[in-house]
Structure formats: structure tokens, C-alpha cells
Design a protein around this nucleic acid. Structure first.
Lengths: 190, 190
DNA sequence: TTTATCATGTAAGTCGTTACATGATTGA
DNA sequence: TCAATCATGTAACGACTTACATGATAAA
């Protein structure tokens, strides 16, 4: 139910096609909410049926035509209404396959657990590198989509930074946690 | 796809009914993977069809009859096979409504954002209190389900602690992060 | 020449949520 | 007497994933 508002919120920055939306999504909203491209296309179709967005086809000669979506007044009202309501949950649903395996560590064995933790650390170090590039490519995207988007991004900047900072801090904490786990497993004897 | 293995992993501790499973789930696996009671019943039915678990009805005179599920040899093999494979993802899917609203903070306004952060802190303080009681009630449950479960819990204890510690650390980090956000919003002028 | 990017979507299937139905017992 | 706990499930719906289909251009 929230995906639609994520989309509306981005379309309120500037009109975009589903394809473009996905690219901006991946560098911003993705930190807090994931969506696949087919999900986005489907939701856009639903939103249009309900009058929350409108679309027009933009013909391009060097590239395939694209369908650019714009938020309607109705859509803006719906978005702001949602935004003002208390969130349904402050603690998000958990679905962590890695942690599930770790929880059954006794059946996996000490070495298996250590391997798993090393792999986890690697993934988190990659994520750390991605923070910088994500920020840069988000700015680059904003540039591609015009001045309206850039100016809007500056207004939103404070909150994007708050969200990214949280992701960064959690990422670092998890790296430290995983390293400590490995150290403790090394110290303890079985 | 992982829910089934979460269930198999718990049934490997000791045989249980769906109802009991859910209670243990809520105090342990829930930290890393959520499941509703109807999901558990459905998954148990599927697992039985596939021969990964078997069940027998236990008649009780003071309470309704219950259906106790036991992991089969096939189930144990399947579980261990899954456990040994590299997780499909080390970074879990995100679906955080609160953070989504925060990301659109510019449209919410400074006071709206501060309210949201205060509410978030409250929820996290409640979660903090729950850590202690969860641990205690897990032990209590283990006691109810017999010695097999208790002895198994002791073997698994190290990994349960690792998982709970991570949840505790992240929780504290998020409280600190939210407080800092409020402070910074207070300092900055618009 | 093959891979990647641009661009849109459908269809099938799985997974997850919510509401409903039943009915006994126990504690406040 | 009313709510909670015990105990099991079904049904309907909604959300999400994965695979498939199409077809152009640009770069390696």
C-alpha cells in the first residue's frame, strides 16, 4: 500500500517515465523501500486508472518512445493525506535469510558460521562503497531530468541525507558486530 | 521460501503444534523473520504434503485437541541442505513505512518530522524493554515444552544471543540517531 | 558479434495479510 | 459477565517475484 505513495512522492519532484522512476528509486527510496520494475509499471497503471497520475507518450527518434507520468492535483492531495497520517508500523517487517541461517548456527558448525559472517562483511563493505557512488549518480540523474528536479532535490536534501546517514551508521555497526562475533568465536572453545 | 526452513529448524528443536510454534517463533525467529499464524498453519500443511514433517493429533481433555508436528528424516536433510547453501541475499528487502515518510520530510514540515521521530523513539524504547521479557518468556516456553527443548536451547544459546545482541545494538543506534536528528533540526533554522 | 541500455509491459505463480468461523476453558 | 487464552483452520484478497516477449541503438 505504500509503494504508490513512494511513486507519487517522486513524481511530485518531477514528471518521469516508469523506467526513469526506477532509476531514481534505486538511488534513493531503495534505502527504505524496494520495488521491482514490473511492480512500478503495474502500480503506475493502477494510479492512472484512479486519476492520481496522468501520462503522455513522448516520441523519441533515437530511442524507443516513452510514457511520461505526471502527478495530478488529486494525486498530490492523496499523497499529502497519507504523509500526514501516523505510519502503520514504526518497526518494519523482517525477512532476513542470512540472519535466519545464523540463528541455526549450532547446526551449521563454527566454521560454517565464520564463513557466513565473512561473506556478510564483504557485502557490507561493498554497500559502504556504494553510498558515495549512489549519491553522485543521484545528482547526475537529477541533472538529466532538468532544473526542476535539481531545485527540488536541494529542498529535499536534508531528509535524503538523514536517511542515508542512518543507512551508513547501521551498515558500520553491522560490520563491527560481525567482526566481534568472529573474534568471540575464535576465542571460545567448543 | 525461507519460512519453511525457519519452521523446520524449530521443529528440529522439538515437536510442536502450530500454535506452540507461533509462540516460540514470536520470541526468537521473529527478530529476523516474521510470520503470521495463518501462514504457519498453511506452511505446515504444505510441509506435511511434501513429507518434510509428520503429525499426530494429541487429545487433551481440558483444552482443545492439538496437532503436533515432528520433523522427518527427509525434512532434516532438506533443512541442512538449505542451511549449507550461500544465502540468496545478505541484505534483506526493505519495506519501512516510517522511513519513507521521513524521506519526504520536506513536504511534511519540520514539526511533522519531529513528531514522527519522537514516535519512533517511543516505539524503540518499548522494543528495548521487550528484549528482556522476550528472553525470559522464551526460557519459560522451553520449560513448558520439556527437557529436550531446554537442552537444545542451551546448545543453540550462543547463536540466539548473537542474534539478539545485534537487534539490541541496532535498536540503540536508531534511538541515538533519531535523537541527533531532532537536535539538528532544532539547531538549524529554515 | 555480443552485451548493455533504453523502454514497455503481461502472465503465472508464490507469498503474505486480513477477516472470518468455531468452541471450550479460565481468570478478572 | 467479559475478555483472554487455547487451538485449528479457510477464503479472499493483495503484494511481490520471476520469467517471458518485443525491438531498437550503441559500445566493446
Amino acid at each position: 500500500m505504500s509503494l504508490r505513495y513512494a511513486i507519487l512522492g517522486l513524481l511530485d519532484y518531477c514528471p518521469m517515465s516508469g523506467y526513469n522512476l526506477k532509476k531514481v528509486f534505486d538511488k534513493s527510496i531503495n534505502y527504505v523501500w524496494n520495488a521491482s520494475i514490473s511492480q512500478i509499471y503495474r502500480e503506475l497503471a493502477t494510479l492512472e486508472k484512479e486519476g492520481y497520475v496522468s501520462s503522455k507518450v513522448v516520441v523519441q527518434d533515437d530511442r524507443p518512445d516513452k510514457k511520461v507520468y505526471e502527478i495530478t492535483e488529486e494525486g498530490r492531495v492523496g499523497f499529502l493525506e497519507w504523509l500526514g497520517q501516523r505510519p502503520g508500523a514504526f518497526i518494519s517487517p523482517k525477512r532476513d535469510e542470512f540472519m535466519l541461517k545464523l540463528l541455526f548456527g549450532a547446526s551449521l558448525g563454527k566454521e560454517g558460521v565464520k564463513d557466513l559472517l565473512e561473506q556478510f562483511i564483504q557485502e557490507r563493505l561493498n554497500a559502504k562503497k556504494a553510498f558515495r557512488t549512489d549519491r553522485e549518480s543521484l545528482m547526475k540523474l537529477a541533472g538529466d531530468y532538468g532544473e526542476v528536479f535539481i531545485r527540488r532535490m536541494e529542498k529535499e536534501g536534508r531528509y535524503i541525507r538523514i536517511v542515508m546517514k542512518r543507512a551508513f551508521l547501521v551498515n558500520q555497526l553491522l560490520i563491527d558486530w560481525a567482526r566481534e562475533c568472529i573474534d568471540e568465536l575464535d576465542k571460545e572453545e567448543d
